[in-house]
Amino acid sequence: MDFYRVLGLGPKLQLNSVELQQLFYGRSRELHPDRFARAEPSVRAAALEESSLLNDAYRTLKDPVSRAEYFLKHRGFDIGEQGTKDVPPELLEEVFELNMALEELKSGDESARPQLATARDHFAALLAQSDDELTNLFAAHDASPAEAVLRQIRGVLNRRRYILNLLRDVNGYLSN
């Protein structure tokens, strides 16, 4: 896991954002091109590459969701791949119903609007809930790393992605 290595971090899912930023600034200074102005071209190139890796690492790890996706990918999970279907059936039902309501609204049936507003609030709450779940699962994993916990995290990530897509659609239509 290069992103963890370049920041000098151990493989933890819980990261403190202030500490992470300090590590990033510290490493950025160490790798600053000015320091390598008179170095061998190969050394300079290596520092530049490391510096670009560092930027990607910080951008990915500072966000808990992209961090978890990165982490899971390097633990052999097919996160972000089309084909992951780890979603609870009840959520599928809700997603389906909400899409039906969206379609009615699109076809000009304004009576679907209040239902959509209710659904949006419900899905916003589900989103907040999945964020809490992630926080708890991160802590559980760091306390005792286990494949089962990572699988649970993947389930939450999938659910979250679904909810985000829906919220975007619903908000788009409600604001029209």
């Binding site: 089309q82 279907k85 780890d86 599928l92 679904y162 897509n165």
Partner: peptide, 13 residues
């Protein structure tokens, strides 16, 4: 059968 693909938000019944 109700299935879905979280990645693209698809849902199929």
């Amino acid at each position: 059968g109700m299935v879905g693909a979280p990645e693209c938000g698809d849902v199929m019944k």
